[in-house]
Nucleic acid binder design. Sequence first.
DNA 1: CACTACAGTGAACGCCGTTCACAGTCAAAC
DNA 2: GTTTGACTGTGAACGGCGTTCACTGTAGTG
Lengths: 253, 253
Amino acid sequence: MVQPRQGGTEGAESADGAGSRPLWFIPPAGQEAQRRVLTRERVVVEALAIIAEHGVDALSMRALATRLGVVPGALYRHVLNKEQLHDLVLDGVLAEVDTRIEKRLTWIEQITVLAHRLRAVLEAHPGIAGLLKTRDPLGPHSLALAEAFLASLSGAGLPPRQAGLAYSLIYGHILGFALDGPSSVNEQRVRDTATRAELHTFLRALPPDRFPTLVALGEHVWVDNRDERFTTGLDTILHGLETTWPPTGDAAA
Amino acid sequence: MVQPRQGGTEGAESADGAGSRPLWFIPPAGQEAQRRVLTRERVVVEALAIIAEHGVDALSMRALATRLGVVPGALYRHVLNKEQLHDLVLDGVLAEVDTRIEKRLTWIEQITVLAHRLRAVLEAHPGIAGLLKTRDPLGPHSLALAEAFLASLSGAGLPPRQAGLAYSLIYGHILGFALDGPSSVNEQRVRDTATRAELHTFLRALPPDRFPTLVALGEHVWVDNRDERFTTGLDTILHGLETTWPPTGDAAA
DNA sequence: CACTACAGTGAACGCCGTTCACAGTCAAAC
DNA sequence: GTTTGACTGTGAACGGCGTTCACTGTAGTG
């Protein structure tokens, strides 16, 4: 009776109505169990509200329970644990990304539009990117997003494997970017004018024999230039893709 | 008496010997306060040991204190709080990156070598990348790393601002990559053959009208291909940089 | 009407980071 | 050589966290 537990995620069935499916599959959440005051949906909605109001760190089971007028343990009737709550919250956020693409645009324009939409949504929910980075939700909205990116890349003439790799690269760029978002410690530091000036002074005062380049152009690195960094970074990636696999090339190896 | 607290990092002076310098400046840690059993250095070393043995999540002040044969509160004589401990640990890790570069290599080869070294060190300390991503240590070793990258990029003929942006892009790629490292949930899932097969089946079974591309080439996205993803991603970025600012171009605008 | 499935309760367990009055000890000052 | 003072480590506590579990009451089913 040793049933094959598949690696990593364990004990994922019980509060879930989904039987033996892995934790990271999020069921369509139909009209299951809405007989009582609490619903999985309501739990997730209020979790999102807490994050929106006080950031992702403020999302504790206890705070969430209090907000729902309920005792902490009650949440565990609707959510397996905090990790699954994170998964659900994530898919809720990704639902806000508009994945429709205008087919008359260049594939580069398509990717750019998608990327900016995703970035906007992620930065609208401070701290959320941190959850995404170590997780592939595989919920419906996450899948829709991947589909949109892959469709554009594939339509650009990239062979399947390259399209997959390109998606990983672009997706990683966006996530990594949103991750130290405007609310991160780094950006706070650099945004504050006084601190930034202090930082530049610090850089200029470094021993020039050990850090010649930093002394010379360090002020170009730590700048409040999120938009520029995001855009030119994305452009560089796309440009690299374009020149490596020129458009409308046939899909031969 | 309202003294100007500058944003984000607060109250950073007391256990530090550094007077009014900001938290994220890490002093050379000379022979300060080694009269007793505990040293800041010893604290950091054992913290690193805990991370090496049990991962970054296992690093708690209490566990660290126990390991040092000391009561938890004692740590606060040598470290301001857990965040500063993280900063110190980070710089300790970055010290392991060899930042010397062979000047006879192409700038692309130089960057590639540096990138692979950084990735290796980060993946050797599971979970560390997660600390780095929301933090710019500005410790000596972090600076040395930035110096190395910037020197190569600058030597390639990139104008200052573009070099800074390129560094951010490359650094972000490496960090983002190490972040969902081999120990992350994602990779565990995909590494397990049975789970991966299950995942591919899941992808193939998706409704083809809503996810045509995913069904067709989804198996190319979630693959155990970390090396390939890292390398071709980096290549794409470097290629993009190369074709955007061709080598040995003069630095005019 | 009896039964049962189950949502929510209340209390506890064992973690966590951090604070603080206090004790012991060593080095400098007299 | 004694006093003084600075400072490291102690012990105990505070408030918070995620999670578990025996229980209660109610709502729907037979």
